[in-house]
């Protein structure tokens, strides 16, 4: 990796380049680069068949499907309700609005384990909410979706909110003056402006969901093949001192996450070009 100042600022007068760059790189090397490279280093020490067998074990495959499915479900729920909440918080006045606005950050501030036990208790068959349903919420994939919805909500609200705030009312007035009704104005004028932020919010929530562990283990029930998420498989393998197996699954997760972020970046690039050509 080559990190040198471009000629442009070779003689910049702002001090501290070598110091801060050196410190940053040192920190990142110790904390991120060296440890993460261990994953791939250890994976390469496995034979291909060994690796393939581990990652394609039915239990692992079931966990991939579960993790992807529940993350997608929670992400979609959050895009819909998160956008509505952002809209309500920006556009309407109602009593207690300030408190509600602050509360949206709760999932960022509350430890995941605390959220996990609280949601598990609330949605268990005899919990306050769970008792009203004659099917299981906690200890089923539904419970996982609930936990992931909790974790992901602020990502959507907090990315959509500023965009909505900065949306000039002029374009809406223009739309109205040209004869559009409220629904047309929303779908044709407001929604396209919000879409990039919604995608960003979704992808942030989704990326977080893929790796989420703390809030899920308590509510999921962790039944192999049914409610066992991929991070839990890694955890189980670690507890059995199967470091090689854990590493193999971790490789799949990392590649999956990076692939997802890559795709999202492309989608964002395309939507930005489409809607925000200046």
């Amino acid at each position: 990796m080559e990190l040198t100042l471009k000629k442009r600022n070779k003689k910049t007068i702002i001090p501290g380049f070598s110091l801060t760059l050196g410190y940053t790189m040192l920190y990142l090397s110790i904390i991120v680069i060296l440890p993460l490279s261990m994953i791939f280093f250890n994976t390469f020490s496995m034979s291909w068949s060994e690796f393939y067998e581990t990652i394609s074990h039915p239990r692992a495959v079931a966990s991939y499907k579960l993790t992807l499915g529940t993350s997608l479900g929670a992400g979609l729920i959050n895009v819909v309700f998160g956008t509505i909440i952002a809209w309500v918080l920006i556009r309407y006045e109602f009593p207690g609005k300030k408190i509600v606005d602050g509360l949206v950050d709760l999932p960022f501030a509350l430890p995941t384990a605390v959220a996990g036990i609280a949601l598990a208790t609330l949605y268990s068959p005899n919990g306050w909410v769970g008792q009203f349903f004659d099917f299981k919420i906690a200890y089923s994939p539904l419970g996982i979706i609930i936990a992931l919805t909790f974790i992901g909500l602020p990502f959507v609200v907090r990315t959509v909110q500023p965009v909505l705030q900065n949306l000039s009312s002029e374009v809406e007035e223009a739309s109205a003056s040209l004869g559009a009704n409220r629904i047309q104005t929303f779908t044709k004028v407001i929604f396209p402006e919000l879409l990039p932020a919604m995608i960003t919010g979704f992808s942030l929530a989704f990326a977080r969901s893929l790796g989420e562990y703390g809030s899920i283990v308590f509510i999921a029930g962790n039944i192999p093949m049914k409610t066992e998420i991929t991070p839990l498989i890694i955890m189980t393998k670690l507890e059995q001192y199967d470091y090689v197996g854990a590493t193999a699954i971790a490789t799949v997760m990392l590649i999956g996450s990076f692939l997802f972020l890559f795709i999202i970046n492309i989608i964002q690039w395309v939507t930005n070009r489409k809607f925000n050509q200046h």
Binding site: V32, G211, I234, M235, M253, L254
Partner: peptide, 17 residues
């Protein structure tokens, strides 16, 4: 990067080291 890495993996890498 850490935002794209599961916390479980964050623990795992230090075990591997």
């Amino acid at each position: 990067l850490p935002f794209a890495v599961s916390p479980v993996i964050a623990g795992l890498i230090f075990i591997l080291l």
